[in-house]
Design a protein around this nucleic acid. Sequence first.
DNA 1: CCCTTTTAATTGTCCAGACAATTGTACAAT
DNA 2: ATTGTACAATTGTCTGGACAATTAAAAGGG
Lengths: 248, 248
Amino acid sequence: MKQHRYEQIAKALGERITSGALSIGDSLPTEAALCKKYRVSRYTAREALRRLREAGLITRRPRAGSTVTAAGTSTAFSLPLSSAADLFRYATDTRFVIQRRERIHAAGEDLAVLGCRRGQAWVRLSGVRRKPGIAIPLCLITVYLHESLAGLAKRLPRSAGAIYPMVEQELGVRIARIDQRIEAVPLGEPQAAALGPARPAKGTAGSAPAIGLRVRRYYFDSRDRLLEVSDSLHAATAFAYEMRLRRD
Amino acid sequence: MKQHRYEQIAKALGERITSGALSIGDSLPTEAALCKKYRVSRYTAREALRRLREAGLITRRPRAGSTVTAAGTSTAFSLPLSSAADLFRYATDTRFVIQRRERIHAAGEDLAVLGCRRGQAWVRLSGVRRKPGIAIPLCLITVYLHESLAGLAKRLPRSAGAIYPMVEQELGVRIARIDQRIEAVPLGEPQAAALGPARPAKGTAGSAPAIGLRVRRYYFDSRDRLLEVSDSLHAATAFAYEMRLRRD
DNA sequence: CCCTTTTAATTGTCCAGACAATTGTACAAT
DNA sequence: ATTGTACAATTGTCTGGACAATTAAAAGGG
């Protein structure tokens, strides 16, 4: 496993941040200093800093240099959202591993999530979302597809990226609106086990209340027909939901 | 407004995608082709493609080139005004009851929230947000104002509505961007007591883990200067965050 | 003391070139 | 028809240089 030069540098700097040697507000070495220290070209030093910025650890400004903005230890993953494009990109560099695939008729808990008429036919896909190379899944996820998408559901590979563009293509419609609902919920034992790495041991129930962040998304077409619902459950210790609102 | 070379190229390619001239699965010109066509170095061509990838429009693989992965859905969903207006409306029919008002220099926990340089001067207001006629506060809230707003902070009444319009008026600037971060956190004893109505009694510690939803908002002006930060803590049992993404 | 101007340090953009790593394609062999 | 192999197209990584744009900090003026 060859590690690239810029990865080594990014890793070294990242560890100085996560270990606390550099804390929030501190400055990192300038590009010129990194070039000299590691004997690399400016391209390589910039690439290392670029990765750190994309990881949300630092910000960079001309003349001010690179500044630590997050300790990195708190939440391992965050979902920066400023548009549906981000939603899509998040989905494309993670993979939806489908573990179950069923036809259902809305009832019980499913009905509560869907909010449709009782008995309406849907396809339910459940599984986890993974980031390649990382053992712990990012979240547990259940996707409901409208019965008119049963054909698509069958053809879906065991491991898929974003769903809603496929829905658009399948039906030839446009997703015109996405409603989101975010809430904090307690995690059950099996859920916590699936999402958490090592729980602090000592199975004395309730010692460390496992907390989750549940995100539900409802996808509507231009005539307000509900086509898809996704329900994902993240470990609160490893996930924060970020979004950006712009005003032009 | 000078537009950089790679921005021009990215824009040209992006328009071919959003206009439908290129659809999902189609290939973009290779880097070499772009270099030749636009008379630029490979650095510039790569930078253009990199932006498109970061925008979620394309994926790139060695030998396979650049492939369109998202159709016109690029800049589509965003909620520039509707949400800012909703944010405003939410704040105006509730009231921010200020309980403490201090000048601080960024350090410790404040620094972690602000993510600015250590020692920078801010004004911190803390209190609760209430809905008139309801006994239990909606949330605990801390607001940080940039030192240039110290005058405003002094004049604020004990009970105020939305803060950011006042910030805009005070400095004569426009809030151009609001970053939000939502996470689930465990509630401490005093916080749970302040937010919760009747806890299920029986103080047997840990029996009912109190869960909160923390929402942080960062308000930036058009030059990306951070002017205001709000940090609010809601009881999970009584609060869910809902939003709607539209596409015109 | 506060405000404006200048200066210089730092990142941002861009060029021209080199080699490495990956992988789709075509062709050969079974 | 399937499998394996060689080829070559394409992106990924990296060097060393140059100038532009931005802006924090210093210097100066009221």
